[in-house]
C-alpha cells in the first residue's frame, strides 16, 4: 500500500519536472524563433526603406524642362556641334576631368574643327561625369553643368575647348571650385554673364548631367574618350588603323564618298578653321531650361 503510494508520488513529481522541462524547451524554441524573425524583419525593413529612399534621392529628369537649349536626341542628352546636314556623324563621349580626353582633344582638335568647318562632319557630344566617382570630388559634374550652361547660350564648343586646354590633373579636383569654371568662361567671348554665373553656381542642369551619365552607364561603353565615326568605334583605332589627324581625315573622306557636304554659315566656318577659336552657332531651339 505504502510503496504504491510512494511510486505514485514520485512519478507525479517526475511528471511535473518533465512537464516543466518540456515547457522550458518549448519556450526556448519560441524565443529563438522570435529572434530569427526579428532579425529577418530588421533586414527586410532596411532593404525596403533603403530602396525607397535611394529611389527618391535620384533626381528625376524631364527632357522637356531640364535639358539645355539646342540639345538633341529623343531625351535631349546630346550636344550637337556643326551642320546637321553633314554626311558623317562623330559621336564623342568625354568626361571633363578625363586626361585621355584631354590628349585626344589636344591631338585632334584642329583636325576635327577643320572637318566641321568643311561641313564633312557633325559632332554629338555626350558629356559624362563618372570620374567624380572614381577619384572622388565634384569637378566633373560641376564642369558638365557649366558646359550645359554654355550650351544653353550657344557657346558650348568654345567653352569645351577652353576647359580641355586648362584641365587640371585628374587627381586634383580643381573644378570643385565653381569660381574657376567661371573665370575660364571669361576666355570665351560673350559667355560670361550674371545668368551664366548663376547657372554654374546653382547647378541648374544637375539633373541633366545625371541623366547623361546614366545614359553613358547603360551604353555599354566603359571608358572615355569613346569616339564613334558613324557608329563605329574610332578611338584608339578604326578598322585596326591608329587614330591620327591624317588617318581620321581619310576615314571621314572615305565614309563621305559620293555624299553632299553640309554648308555652314561662313562666319562659323572661318572661326572653326582658325586654330585658336571658333563659334558654335547659337542654339536654334530656344527655351530649354525654364
Amino acid at each position: 500500500m505504502s510503496t504504491k503510494n510512494d511510486v505514485g508520488k514520485r512519478s507525479a513529481r517526475e511528471r511535473m519536472q518533465e512537464e516543466r522541462a518540456r515547457e522550458e524547451v518549448a519556450a526556448r524554441k519560441k524565443r529563438k524563433l522570435a529572434v530569427i524573425l526579428t532579425a529577418l524583419v530588421v533586414i527586410a525593413a532596411a532593404v525596403v526603406i533603403g530602396i525607397v529612399v535611394q529611389n527618391g534621392r535620384t533626381s528625376s529628369y524631364n527632357a522637356g524642362t531640364d535639358a539645355p537649349g539646342g540639345t538633341v536626341g529623343n531625351t535631349r542628352l546630346l550636344v550637337p556641334v556643326g551642320g546637321t546636314a553633314a554626311p558623317s556623324t562623330v559621336t564623342i563621349y568625354e568626361d571633363p576631368r578625363c586626361p585621355a580626353c584631354e590628349q585626344f582633344e589636344t591631338g585632334m582638335r584642329a583636325t576635327i574643327n577643320q572637318l566641321l568647318a568643311q561641313g564633312k562632319i557633325q559632332i554629338q557630344y555626350h558629356i559624362a561625369s563618372f570620374i567624380d566617382r572614381h577619384d572622388g570630388g565634384k569637378g566633373s559634374k560641376n564642369a558638365a553643368n557649366a558646359l550645359a550652361c554654355a550650351q544653353n547660350v550657344g557657346r558650348f564648343h568654345d567653352y569645351h575647348d577652353v576647359l580641355y586646354a586648362n584641365q587640371p590633373q585628374e587627381t586634383v579636383d580643381a573644378w570643385a571650385d565653381r569660381s574657376i569654371l567661371i573665370s575660364l568662361a571669361k576666355q570665351v567671348p560673350g559667355l560670361d554673364s550674371p545668368g551664366f554665373e548663376a547657372c554654374v553656381n546653382n547647378n541648374s542642369y544637375g539633373s541633366w548631367v545625371t541623366a547623361v551619365q546614366s545614359d553613358f552607364d547603360k551604353s555599354g561603353y566603359n571608358s572615355t574618350p569613346t569616339v564613334l565615326l558613324n557608329g563605329t568605334p574610332a578611338y584608339p583605332t578604326y578598322n585596326s588603323q591608329d587614330i591620327s589627324p591624317a588617318n581620321f581625315t581619310a576615314w571621314v573622306d572615305n565614309a563621305n564618298k559620293g555624299k553632299p557636304l553640309a554648308s555652314m554659315p561662313s562666319a562659323s566656318a572661318e572661326a572653326l578653321a582658325s586654330p585658336t577659336a571658333h563659334n558654335n552657332p547659337p542654339a536654334s531651339a530656344s527655351g530649354g531650361h525654364s
Binding site: 529572434v35 533586414i43 526603406i49
Partner: peptide
C-alpha cells in the same frame, strides 16, 4: 540601392548580437 542597406542591417544585428 538595396544591397548597401542589407549590409548595414547585417552590421547592426552583428553589432548588438541579435540573431
Amino acid at each position: 540601392y538595396g544591397l548597401p542597406f542589407l549590409e548595414l542591417a547585417l552590421a547592426l544585428l552583428l553589432l548588438v548580437g541579435l540573431g
